[in-house]
Amino acid sequence: MKQQRRNYGQYCGLAGTLDIVGERWTLLIIRELLTGPCRYNELLANLPGIGTNLLADRLKFLTETGLVRQRRQEGAKIRLYELTEQGEGLREAVLALARWGLGVLSTPAAEDAVRPRWTMLAVEAMVDPSAAEVDEQYEFRVDGEVFHVTVRDGRVSVAHGKADGEPALTVHTDAVTFVEIGAGRLSPLEATLTKRLVMEGDGEAVLRCSRLLGLVG
């Protein structure tokens, strides 16, 4: 039996969306799964403060509503949670919210959590496809998390893992620095001069990547 939840009682697309994803923590669970399938304990670790009972409740509801499904990890007994096609349909909405949210971030408090995997979604939110110039890849290494951006035939994709072959640019930084740059609170130049950001690649690739992410005009 599906869980009975409060709803807005409004015949409206936005209200219908909020009936499903408007509860506290739900969109953050979606955020985690947009970066790839996760084990339950990974979700719990990357959502500090949620509590295991609440996480289980939210996952059960999202599974019942068809946004999330479980599958066995290949060659193991571990269960993974992943988004269904319907859940993936929230990607653009979540990216738009993340993009908007970067503009309202202030200085992080000491107790604010940050995870390197969140930077992958931040990059995806920052990408301006109209600035895709040259077919190449940029690799990001953020606190041990590795992902890459591929520009190919005017299209841009972001994926886990190392770039295929030699990337045109490799970026080394930490999660806090990257979010501060994305939020416009720290310039790439200042981050580079203070060695919070290290970029390996030719100057033209640096400029192309910066334009792609909206960091320069």
Rank of each mutant, 00 (worst) to 15 (best):
G49N: 02
I30M: 15
G51Q: 11
L33D: 07
G51P: 08
A56D: 06
L54V: 06
L54E: 04
L34Y: 09
L34W: 09
L27V: 09
G36E: 11
I50N: 03
N53Q: 14
E42W: 01
R39L: 09
G49P: 03
L43W: 05
L47K: 02
L55P: 02
R31E: 14
R39G: 13
L47Q: 02
N53S: 15
L33S: 07
P37H: 01
T26H: 03
L28H: 06
G36R: 06
I30G: 01
A56T: 11
I30D: 03
G51L: 14
G49C: 05
L27C: 10
P48H: 08
I50P: 01
R39V: 11
L43H: 12
C38P: 03
A56C: 07
T35K: 04
A45Y: 02
C38W: 02
L44I: 08
L34N: 09
R31T: 08
A56R: 12
T35E: 12
P48G: 10
C38Y: 04
R31A: 10
A45K: 07
C38V: 11
N46S: 13
I29V: 15
C38M: 15
L55C: 01
T35R: 06
P37T: 03
T52V: 07
G49E: 00
L55G: 03
C38I: 06
L44T: 05
N41A: 12
L55D: 02
L43T: 13
L33W: 07
P37K: 04
L44H: 08
R39W: 06
L34Q: 10
G36A: 11
L33H: 08
L54Q: 05
G51W: 09
T26W: 01
N53D: 15
R39I: 10
I30N: 04
T26L: 02
N46D: 13
N46P: 04
L47F: 00
R31V: 12
R31H: 10
N41C: 07
L43P: 09
T35N: 08
R39F: 05
L43G: 12
N46L: 14
C38E: 15
G51N: 08
Y40E: 13
L54A: 08
A56P: 01
L55Y: 00
Y40P: 04
T26V: 15
R39C: 10
G51E: 10
E42G: 11
C38Q: 15
L55V: 00
L43Y: 06
N53L: 14
I50D: 03
R31L: 10
Y40F: 15
L33A: 11
L55S: 02
T35M: 08
T26S: 04
R39H: 08
G51A: 08
E32G: 04
T52E: 12
E42S: 14
T35I: 03
T35V: 14
P48Q: 11
L43A: 08
N53P: 05
P48C: 09
N53E: 15
I50T: 08
T52Q: 13
Y40G: 06
L54S: 07
A56F: 00
T26I: 13
L33T: 11
P48S: 12
I29N: 02
N41D: 13
L44W: 06
L44M: 09
T35H: 00
L34A: 10
L28T: 09
L44S: 12
T52G: 05
N53M: 14
